[in-house]
């Protein structure tokens, strides 16, 4: 049993994450299908279809996770998407192809083990949404904490992304992007 505030914090943060992810993919569909092809996992025949479905599924997560009635389904979908990304990244890391772009966001980012940790944390949090919550009435303090927590989690996410990019700089000694 978890507190309804935790459920709200997780679902709002995941909604934000999936919205930005889908936005990048919808804005540059050609780039995304090239990134997807680079993973060398999907047969070329169905690649365009998969490249079209993934951003739509991410958008669906964004909408459905915010509605209490559909939240568990959206959480399962989100978890499934994250599990498949993680497997794809793990396979390519295992193959030693860590120089490909992960396609995670606007900045080019190479594959690394940290992505597996990040995705595991996201998977665990999305499956937490399926667990039943206590029935507590939310008061105004909860909403204040909710907004603070969402901004805190987004900032932590950005911070870790930046640190990983810095690590890439020192490893390669040269620039991948500006």
């Amino acid at each position: 049993m978890i507190d309804p505030l935790t459920i709200l914090i997780i679902s709002a943060s995941l909604a934000l994450l999936f919205f930005t992810a889908a936005k990048h993919k919808l804005r540059a569909p050609g780039q995304f299908s090239a990134q997807l092809a680079d993973y060398k996992l999907i047969p070329p025949g169905i690649l365009p279809g998969v490249a079209r479905i993934i951003p739509i599924a991410e958008m669906a997560v964004f909408f459905l996770i915010l509605i209490p009635l559909t939240r568990p389904w959206a959480a399962v979908l989100a978890g499934g998407l994250l599990v498949s990304y993680t497997i794809a990244i793990a396979i390519n890391l295992f193959r030693g192809r860590d120089e490909i772009d992960c396609g995670c966001g606007s900045h080019p980012q190479n594959l690394s083990y940290w992505l597996l940790f990040r995705n595991s944390a996201l998977i665990i949090s999305s499956y937490l949404l399926v667990t039943p919550s206590t029935n507590r009435a939310l008061v105004w303090v909860d909403f204040l904490l909710l907004s603070l927590m969402i901004s805190l989690l987004s900032c932590v996410y950005l911070l870790i992304e930046q640190l990983v990019r810095n690590q890439g700089f020192s490893k390669n000694g040269r620039i991948n992007d500006g």
């Binding site: 911070l159 930046q162 640190l163 990019r165 810095n166 700089f169 020192s170 000694g173 040269r174 620039i175 500006g178």
Partner: peptide, 15 residues
């Protein structure tokens, strides 16, 4: 962290 990133891009030797 951003400032470190910016420094990296400034100092990186170019090919």
């Amino acid at each position: 962290a951003r400032q470190i990133g910016v420094l990296h891009t400034r100092l990186a030797p170019t090919d």
